Computed example of a mutant assay.
Amino acid sequence: MGETDTGSVTASQQDWLAQLEAESRGKQKAFMDGIAAKLGRPRVTTAPAHPFRGAPDFWNGFEWPLEERIERFTDNFRSVGGHVERLADMEAVKRFIAAKATELNARYAVRQHQPELDALGLEAAMPEVRFSVWNTDPEEHWTARAAEADIGVVLVDHAAAYTGSLTVLSSQDKGRSVSLLPTVLIAVVPVERLHTRLGEILVRFDAAGRQGLPAGIHFISGPSRSADIENDLTIGVHGPGIVYALLVGRQ
């Protein structure tokens, strides 16, 4: 029985692949040359220079004062169907959430396991609502609890006025399902976390490096919206259909 010349087969395959690549590149060159000819100019074959990286200096230094940040965020968030309330303190936040739960006839709610939300005492203030605190029971099916919830309550990590965006990070105590699955989302936004530009938020993640990144970074700009090819807009298909941003402090 004859031996198989593995080296010859491999060399033959490499030659065949090289031939295919050469043919592909030749077709690509002919295609691009044809476009350049129709445009009446020579084809660009070298990459353009990029002397600048990132946002220009004037944009990095751009910042609105706090009251304008609040006004711009409010306008932008409301323009896409979100709701914004300006509240003096966390006690006002508790009253708002309790009143909204009564108005919506809510029966189930889920919230992040955060010290600021723990201190609100929502469970005592709303005994008629079954409140689940994320990841406090290892036997619980937390995604299911969030999916059945009428209301989800989160503490926002950052917000950007220019884009009307909330930034919510995921961690062991801050499951992404709390903001993604309930019918209504109530996002508590301390005003000191409200920035002018989205870049002010993104640069923090860059500075933290790969090892310092959270499990998830979620940008929320109003209620869930989805449109088909005929531009029929539907609200609440892939997330909460109602979103409240509660701007808290410095009134």
Rank of each mutant, 00 (worst) to 15 (best):
A55P: 01
V154I: 06
P115S: 05
H158F: 15
Q112I: 11
Q28S: 12
T6Q: 15
R197M: 08
D57I: 08
Q28D: 08
R43S: 06
H113G: 06
A101I: 13
I235C: 02
T74H: 05
L120V: 03
N60F: 11
S224Y: 11
I151D: 04
L166Y: 00
H218K: 05
E148L: 12
V188A: 08
W64I: 08
V93E: 02
Q28Y: 07
T46Y: 11
I97E: 05
L213H: 00
H113I: 07
Q13R: 14
V84L: 00
T196Y: 10
E91R: 11
A49R: 14
D5C: 11
L155H: 01
H83G: 03
L202Q: 13
G249F: 01
S12R: 12
S79N: 10
Y108E: 09
L198F: 15
S170E: 15
G61S: 14
G26S: 12
S179T: 05
R107M: 07
T163E: 09
I201A: 05
G239P: 09
T183H: 13
T136M: 04
V93H: 03
I97S: 06
A55V: 06
D137E: 11
L246K: 11
P214T: 03
Q112Y: 14
A227Y: 03
A101S: 15
I186S: 07
R130I: 15
L180I: 09
Y244W: 14
A49N: 11
T234E: 01
E85Q: 09
L122C: 01
T10W: 10
R41Y: 03
V129T: 10
I220K: 13
A159E: 02
I186K: 09
E68C: 04
V154R: 01
S179H: 06
D33S: 02
G249S: 00
R210N: 12
G212Q: 06
T74I: 04
P223W: 14
S8M: 15
G26K: 10
A37H: 04
F73V: 04
T10F: 11
G236K: 10
G212S: 10
D173A: 14
R197Y: 07
T234W: 02
A36H: 01
V44K: 00
H158D: 13
G61V: 04
R225T: 00
I220M: 13
T45I: 03
S177V: 09
E140P: 10
V248N: 06
Q211A: 13
A149E: 01
A159C: 07
E91H: 10
R176N: 08
A99H: 02
E192M: 13
D89M: 08
F62L: 00
G34P: 05
R78Q: 15
W142D: 04
L233K: 02
I217K: 07
E139G: 15
E116G: 04
G82Y: 03
D75P: 07
L117I: 11
R41E: 04
G81E: 01
V9H: 10
I151V: 10
G26E: 14
A125R: 15
G82W: 00
P48A: 12
A109V: 09
